[in-house]
Each structure stands twice: as structure tokens, then as C-alpha cells.
Simulated scan of single mutants.
Amino acid sequence: MTHLAGFSQFSDTVHYYANFSGTGNLNRTNTAGSTYLLNNAFQFQVSKKKFSINSLASYIYGKNPSTKTNDDLLAILNLDILKGVQKFYYWALTSYEKSFSLKLDNRFQAGAGVGYTFVNTNNANLEISDGVLFETTDLSIPDQEGQTSYQTVRNSLRLKYRFIIKEIFRFDGINFYQASLSDGDDYILKLRANFSIKLYKWLNFTTSFNYNRQNVTATENLFLSYGLSMEKFF
């Protein structure tokens, strides 16, 4: 999650932020075998007074005794303009995703929009944004219209938040609702939330919650994982 100081505190110096989290869970019995999930993510951010560039790459792999459950990749590159100097800002985004669990072979999105920051301090951040994305998609299974490949334009609504308590506890998340402008039944829902406890100045214990739904194929996934995250400001 992005960490930015308040508007009055932000200088024109270039700021960098890097975060790596490795979380997962494992269940093993002598009768049913092993079930496990690995959830790794890397985030890098470059910030100046009038713009910031954010990148995210995440990979999830899961398996139970009988089959693979997850093999999911997500990469996002996001540009925010004027976010550090005023509440109303502009954004542009491009992303690539593939997901075994959602029956998604490839999805590419690119677009832009506007956002509004309600709160942005060292300990709290709350913002909402909206915009338009062009998407091209290849599916592993036919959708409700019998298609395996299609293009569409989506409205992308995003809610982003971060709260830090006593510099030890942090709760952050980002939620997307992306509905096709041509088909009301074609929507994507992504809910992501993290709760972290600071163990050291650069090390946290982190619990992550993820829920994703792709309505055209009636596929969804939900997982809760825990582990460690490392972060660095420079």
C-alpha cells in the first residue's frame, strides 16, 4: 500500500518505497496429504511532489492433494498526477493478469480517470477514484455468451485506504468494481485487505485477505494467508 505524507509536508525531493511480502498457509494430514497456498507480492513506488509512479507484481500458487488450485499472476503500473499537492488528482493505469482459478488465460487493461483524496497523512489515507479502461481478454472456458476471447470498455471504481495506529498496527486495502459499459452482467470484483504488526522498523507480520470474482464465467476465489513483509523508504 502506498505511504505518502500529508500535502503540506511533501517536498519536491524524489522518494522511493519498496515492499516485498511473502505469505501463505499449509495444511497437512497423514490421510489427505498436503494443501498449501503461497502468496508473494512486490511493490515499488517513485514519488515526487506532482506525480507518483506505482508498480505491483503478485504471484499466487496453490495446490491440494488432487489438483492445482491457484496459478495466478498480476502486474500493475499506475501513474498519479497532482496527488501530492491537491485532493483532486488524475491517474493512468495499465495491467496484465492471468489466473488459473478464475479460468483467465490473459487479461490486459489500460485506461485513465480521476480521483479524490479525503485524507492523506502519515497515519491515515482514504481515497476514491473512477475512470474508463479498455480491456482485451482470453478465457480458458466459454463465458455466458459462449465467447473465449473478447474486448470491452469498463468503468473502473476504486476505493483505497490505509490506517496506522501507534506506528505498530496497520490496516490497508484496495477494492475494485469494474463493470462493462456494454453488458451489466459482465463485471469484475476485487477485494484486497492487509493487517500488519510491526516487528522491526523494516519487518512486519502480515495477514492478507483476497477475494476475486469474474462474473462472466461465474468463477471466484477467496483466500486468507499470513507471513512476513519487508519494506524500505529511501
Rank of each mutant, 00 (worst) to 15 (best):
E97D: 04
L157P: 01
S11K: 15
F209Q: 01
T121Y: 08
T148W: 01
F108N: 11
T137V: 12
A179R: 14
R28A: 15
K50M: 12
N30C: 03
D80G: 12
A179S: 14
N70L: 13
S47P: 06
D186N: 05
S182P: 00
S182N: 07
F163K: 12
I165F: 11
S52I: 02
N19A: 14
L93Q: 07
S55L: 01
N19D: 14
F169W: 09
S47A: 15
A75R: 06
T94M: 15
N175W: 00
V132E: 05
Y16D: 08
L222Q: 12
A179T: 04
I168T: 06
S140D: 11
H3G: 11
Q45N: 14
N40L: 13
S21H: 07
K83D: 08
Q43K: 03
Y226G: 02
Y17L: 09
D172L: 06
S196A: 14
N215P: 05
Y59C: 11
L73Q: 08
T207F: 12
N123P: 00
F176V: 09
Y150A: 00
E127V: 01
S180F: 00
L79H: 07
G111Y: 03
D130S: 07
G113F: 07
G22S: 15
S52Q: 06
L189D: 01
Y96K: 00
K83Q: 13
A41K: 07
N40S: 14
Y36S: 09
S21M: 09
S180R: 02
S229C: 12
N40W: 14
I168C: 02
G173K: 02
W91N: 06
L191M: 11
N70W: 04
L37A: 02
E127S: 14
V153G: 08
S225V: 15
K87M: 07
S34R: 10
F100E: 09
T206C: 05
F42N: 05
N54M: 12
V114A: 08
L126Y: 08
T2F: 14
F176D: 09
Y211P: 08
F223N: 11
K49R: 02
A75L: 15
N40C: 11
T31I: 15
K68H: 08
T121R: 10
M1F: 13
N125A: 11
T117D: 12
T152R: 10
W202K: 11
Y16C: 07
G146F: 06
T94H: 11
G115Q: 01
D138R: 12
R28H: 14
K166R: 08
R154H: 09
A179V: 09
L73W: 09
H15N: 12
E167K: 07
T67V: 13
F10S: 12
F7L: 11
A112K: 10
K50N: 15
F163N: 10
S34I: 08
L159M: 03
S55H: 05
G146P: 01
N125T: 00
E97M: 03
L133W: 03
L104Y: 07
T217K: 06
D183M: 09
I60G: 08
Q147M: 01
L139N: 05
S229A: 10
R170H: 03
I128G: 11
F42C: 02
S95I: 06
S52H: 02
I141L: 06
L37D: 03
F7S: 04
